[in-house]
Structure formats: C-alpha cells, structure tokens
C-alpha cells in the first residue's frame, strides 16, 4: 500500500515536471532544427538531423549580442538597486515604529494593484522630457520603481524571521544599529537577499511591455524586444528566434545556479526556527 502510494506520488511529480519543462524542450528542439526540416518532417520529438546553424547566424548576423548586453545591464542593475533599497526599507518596516508607517505600506500595496498598461503613457510622458526614453537608465529606473514594493515586503518577511534579541545583543555588545544590521542581521538574511536578487533579475530580464514602449531602435533594445525582430511582416524565423531564446535562458540559469544554495535555505528558512 505504502509503496503504491509512493509510486503514485513520484509519478505525479514526474508528470508535473514533464508538463512544466516540455515548452523548454520544444524551444531547444526547434532551435536545432534546420529550416528545411521544420515544416516538412511533421511533428517529431527530434529532427532527423540537428544543426547549430541558427545559433551561428543569430550571433554573427543579428543585433542579438547587443540585446543580450543591454538586458544584462538592465536586469543586473535593477536587481542590485532593488535589493539594496528593499533590504533597507524592509528592515525599517520590520523593526521600527514610525509615523505614517501604515500609510506607506498601503501606498506600496496600491501601486501593485494597477494594471501596468494603464501606466505606460504617463510614464512615457514623464521620462521623455528627461531624456530617459530610449535609454537603459530609464528602463532601470522604471523597473526599480515597480519592483521595490514587492521586494520590500519580501525582505520584510525575512527580517521578521530574525529574532530582535540578536540586534539587541549586538548593540549591547557595542555595535551601533547600523553595525548590528551589517554584521549580524545581513549575513543571516543572505537567503532572503538571494531570493530577492533572483526574483527581480528574472522579472527585469523578461519584461516586455515597458521595454517595447520606452525603447525604439536596436541600440537600447533589451532581449525580449529583440526577439520580436525575428518576426517579420511575412514570416517568423522560428529557428533563429528559438536559438536566441535558448541563449537568453543561459544567464538566468547561471544566476539561479549561483544563488540556489541560499535560495533553498531561504524558502525553508521560515519552517524551523534557526
């Protein structure tokens, strides 16, 4: 009985994984399928002969390397800025009582309720006289603004999980509040910081709406916008698009590989008192 249950359990998990990963597999499969086989072979799990031609073409002949660099700059800067700001604001929300605290929290929640599409036009209007449209800096500012509220709540919950006695002990030991924050609290929040970094990085990496609206031209386009250049008026070059897509996954995967050690800790940190 127990064994059957375990097997059923495993099968369910397996089914879920297959279901979740299948689109990724298809991405990979199409990216190595030569153009002439794409439509002629019907639906097959793997093309009769594979090629890296699409990858070579994307790297050598498209603006893809620029998109890639732009995305890296935007997503990296946004992740850093948001994490820095939200760890400070999350700490304040977790530890201090101050006037207007609940108003601030309410405002931050409200910003999360608006459909972003509504905000595109006003933001464009504000950024354009500042010369921040068509610029990576503008994108970084917008992404940071939109990610800070959620990241703040995320960081706050991590700080809430760290006993106050620890800072109290550090301050009695002779630390200032900031030193206690830096030397005692921050090291213990590394899982939370990693989770926030990862979350914001992927959000900024794959953001399309603002990137599309605020940027025109290839020089400042980020990678999701760049993907659309493979769609021409008359056809979609699926092979090249998928090859670009596979390459776009690489930094996100590397990033998560780097932080996953902290992340796993972080996701279970609340479960048992450290």
């Amino acid at each position: 009985m127990g064994i059957l249950l375990t097997i059923a359990h495993r099968l369910a998990i397996l089914a879920y994984i297959v279901f979740a990963l299948f689109p990724l597999y298809w991405l990979l499969k199409v990216s190595v399928t030569p153009n002439d086989l794409l439509y002629s072979e019907g639906v097959r799990m793997w093309p009769s002969h594979a090629t890296l031609e699409h990858y070579r073409y994307v790297i050598e002949n498209s603006a893809f390397p620029i998109f890639f660099r732009n995305s890296l700059i935007v997503a990296g800067s946004t992740a850093l800025a948001v994490t820095l700001i939200s760890s400070l604001s999350g700490y304040a929300l977790s530890r201090f009582v101050f006037r207007g605290k609940y108003a601030v929290v309410a405002l931050m929640l409200i910003t999360q309720m608006f459909p972003l599409v509504m905000l595109v036009a006003p933001i464009f209007k504000m950024l354009s006289p500042l010369g921040l449209t068509n610029s990576l800096t503008g994108l970084i500012i917008v992404y940071t603004a939109f990610n800070v509220p959620f990241a703040t709540f995320l960081m706050q919950s991590f700080f809430d999980g760290i006993p106050r006695d620890l800072e109290d002990a550090a301050m009695i030991d002779g630390a200032s509040r900031f030193t206690a924050f830096r030397q005692i609290i921050l090291p213990l929040t590394l899982p939370g910081i990693a989770a926030t970094l990862g979350f914001v990085f992927t959000a900024a990496w794959s953001e399309l709406l603002f990137a599309l609206m605020l940027i025109s031209g290839n020089d400042s386009a980020t990678f999701p916008v760049g993907l659309l250049t493979f769609v021409s008026k008359f056809s979609v070059d699926f092979g090249q698009m998928m090859a670009a897509g596979v390459m776009a996954l690489v930094p996100a995967c590397l990033f998560f590989l780097l932080i996953q050690r902290y992340l796993v800790q972080g996701l279970t940190a609340g479960a048992v008192k450290g």
Binding site: L166, D168, A169, A170, I172, G174, S176, I184, L188, G274
Partner: peptide, 29 residues
C-alpha cells in the same frame, strides 16, 4: 545608546550570533 553604557546582558533566548563560532561570539564585543 546601549553601546555607551558598558553593560552586559544575558537573554532568555541566549541570542547567540548563529553565523559566528563560539569564540567569535564571545569576542565580538
């Protein structure tokens, strides 16, 4: 401020710094 009072405190929860060794905990101040 607490740090200028030169007073030591032992907490019910002990409040040891989890990321430091015993020796580092003791020598932190």
């Amino acid at each position: 401020k607490p740090r200028d009072r030169d007073i030591a405190m032992v907490f019910q929860s002990y409040a040891l710094y989890p990321h430091m060794t015993v020796a580092d905990n003791m020598s932190y101040s």
